[in-house]
Computed example of a mutant assay.
Amino acid sequence: MNRLNDTLAQLEFAQIGWVVPDIHAAVRFLSDTLGIPGFPEPEYVRAQDLNMTYQGEVVAADWLTTQTYNGGAFIELIQPLSGRSMFHDYLARHPEGGTQHLAFRLPVSGFERITSALREQGYAVVSEVDHPIARMAFFDTYQPLGMVTEIMGITPDGWEIVKQMEGRS
């Protein structure tokens, strides 16, 4: 096993992130055609409101997003609207959309250890978020995986929200 796989093996798979050109069409397909229930109405997100960095700086960007929990993982859909972000870049390269990232989670106490290991292995951070429920780092793993890898360090309050979203008590 290579060093990236050794690092990722310490984590729990949490989410697949699809960037799509039309979020409503994607929800209809996943819900009506594939029978995946539970997508809430897409919400409007601004990178600046999350203090989300892109290539090291907070930039003006916005998108629509929705997600549901299905079969052991979250399915997240993102439709870029305007600005600069890893989502906008992905859709510019792949106008039809596609799988842009896979997310792996662990308690926030282990976040620095895992993200430091990825940095030491030469994987650059594309985007970061420091949110009260989770710290998130998105790594450029296009070369080995064909997509970005997101590491989520979930806070204690965040685990409660994750349980609610998964439908667990």
Rank of each mutant, 00 (worst) to 15 (best):
M1F: 06
R3W: 06
L4A: 07
N5Y: 05
N5C: 05
L8C: 01
L11A: 03
E12T: 07
E12K: 01
Q15Y: 08
I16T: 05
G17E: 04
G17T: 07
W18F: 10
V20H: 10
A26R: 06
V27E: 13
F29T: 13
S31I: 09
I36M: 13
F39Q: 10
P42W: 06
P42V: 08
E43K: 15
A47V: 00
Q48E: 10
D49E: 12
N51R: 03
N51Y: 04
M52T: 07
M52H: 00
T53G: 01
Y54N: 07
Q55H: 11
E57R: 12
V58T: 08
V59C: 09
A60D: 13
A60W: 01
D62F: 00
D62Q: 13
L64I: 00
L64F: 12
T65E: 09
T65D: 00
Q67R: 11
Q67A: 02
Y69V: 09
N70M: 09
F74H: 12
I75H: 00
E76L: 10
Q79K: 04
L81A: 02
G83N: 14
R84D: 10
R84A: 12
R84H: 12
R84L: 11
S85L: 03
M86L: 14
D89G: 08
Y90A: 03
R93D: 14
P95M: 09
P95G: 15
E96T: 14
E96C: 01
E96W: 08
T99Y: 10
T99V: 14
H101M: 06
A103V: 04
P107M: 05
P107N: 06
P107G: 15
S109N: 08
I114A: 11
R119P: 04
V125D: 06
V125M: 13
E128L: 13
D130E: 07
P132A: 11
R135T: 03
F138P: 03
F139L: 05
D140H: 11
T141S: 03
Y142F: 08
Q143T: 07
G146E: 01
M147G: 14
T149L: 05
M152G: 03
M152H: 11
I154W: 04
D157R: 09
D157E: 07
E160A: 06
V162K: 03
K163C: 02
K163D: 13
G167E: 00
R168M: 03
S169N: 02
